[in-house]
Write a protein that binds this DNA or RNA. Structure first.
Lengths: 138, 138
DNA sequence: GCTTGACTTAGACAATGTCCATTGTAGGAT
DNA sequence: ATCCTACAATGGACATTGTCTAAGTCAAGC
């Protein structure tokens, strides 16, 4: 994670306590927090941080490609720090749990030219929806 | 589309002017309207129809499996009347245009058991993102 | 043509996100 | 070490999308 702070500094980011806290909150694997969850955790460390700053910082990190925006449900966007390894998401329809997964195969190859309608395709998102073991047991 | 009205009547739906109008608005291929767009078009035909009714009716149609809810961006949900033929979506990152597409292959097969973490998988959503010919030309 | 329960309405409310004017401050310049 | 200044943070208003409720309305069966 200090890597991240170093990279950001290298890109000319002004390093503030707020940005550091947001970056720290977004550390780890299988982390998929909403903006408000990020804000809540950031407030624990830096009580006076504002919502607007969290939103701004998340937006900047997305633009820089350091984190990913994920919309697995219709509620809040979630932010995924695992931006440097391509992956897809497995979502529990009941509890909303999210796992990163790494499918084989290439969905791009499954879309023939005749189905591209002249589009230039830049990315493919795949979301697997189902029931997690916890919810299946209940 | 009158098929749809017949099916709904057969399921015990009380047939009202409002429901008929919503169903009519959602007719055709490659239709992906937001709830507010549906409301706007419904108002043209039935000026006193309320937003709540449009939301309720769309929700009921989704529950009945007659239309699909699609979240291609983080903005409003869209409603896709093409619910009876499986398909995926191709989305223009610039203008938001949406095309239904029919890829080959089976993304489910691409997820090995070791990557399922005990989940029971019910559905797979695939969204191709890129630039449409119009936006590429501009 | 009644009755009744399902349907519709308007508007308040909720959740999430954006914007803006003001205040604060990181980091280079002196 | 201190000062400057552009960039960042703040907080609160606002926007968008969606949900809920109480009261009124009406489709369809009798």
């Amino acid at each position: 994670m200090s890597d991240l702070l170093e990279r950001l500094r290298g890109r000319g980011w002004r390093m503030t306590a707020q940005r550091r806290v947001v970056a720290e909150v977004l550390d780890g694997d299988h982390v998929h927090l909403t903006a408000d969850e990020v804000h809540a955790r950031a407030v624990e460390r830096l009580p006076e941080i504002s919502r607007a700053t969290v939103y701004n910082t998340l937006g900047e990190l997305v633009t820089l490609g350091e984190i990913l925006e994920v919309s697995t449900d219709r509620r809040a966007k979630r932010y995924d720090p695992n931006a440097h390894r391509p992956h897809q998401h497995l979502v529990c329809a009941q509890c909303g749990a999210i796992r990163d997964v790494h499918p084989q195969g290439n969905p791009l190859a499954d879309l023939p030219d005749t189905e591209r309608f002249g589009f230039t395709i830049a990315a493919v998102e795949v979301t697997y929806r189902g029931t997690c073991p916890n919810c299946a047991a209940a």
